[in-house]
Amino acid sequence: MLLLAIDTSARATAALVRTHGDRTEVLESFSTDRVNAHAEVLAPAIAGMLEQADVSGREIDQIVVGVGPGPFTGLRVGIATAQALGFAWGVPVGGACSLDAVAWEAAAAGAATGRFVAAIDARRRELYWGVYDDAARLVDGPHVGPASAVAGHEVFGAGAGLYPEQLAAAGAQVVAGWTDRQPDAAALAASAARTLAGGGELLGTTPLYLRESDAKVPAAMLKQTGRPA
């Protein structure tokens, strides 16, 4: 099975992955740390990956896209890209929680034992996080909130390095060597491939925003309607 995975919940990343049974082979991959450049770099990168691998888009069996949680604007770039590629090629597009990618890497490396937390930066002094079992299956979340609210397990991912003291106070343990890990498309593909191989279904492509837009109903409007938003 040939998968194209895209995740823009933190960095812009993409990977072209072929599965062989329960093993996955990364044919091409791309990532950039340039924040705010997702809309610029992602599509050219994917075009380049396909060319390098000498693969036509229509040969792809499944597109997998990280649906967050993650900063909204960048997240939408990945999802819009995945949807439009799927539309043009006639290839199905499924979503996956972006934190799955961090969890997959932690479990695959044998670093995580028992239940653990995958966490990334949610800005505003908060984290996006979820609890995973030792096989990197999401058992609780994803959530958004302060580090002090994170479940008391070992914490993997870029979110772990941001607020070590609050995490420690919450009974969570920051895992050395895993404090800068961001969701990666190749890991997301591997995780999604397992789901599909096990007869499971991917998520839809609706973003996991977890937060409402910040819009406030103006005072003048409140006066008219007499009720809050």
Binding site: H38, L42, P44, A47, V77, A80, T81
Partner: peptide, 15 residues
């Protein structure tokens, strides 16, 4: 803007 641009670029990359 970024939603439209991402979609358009993907259509162009795909076709």
């Amino acid at each position: 803007l970024m939603v439209g641009v991402a979609a358009a670029k993907a259509l162009a990359a795909a076709t």
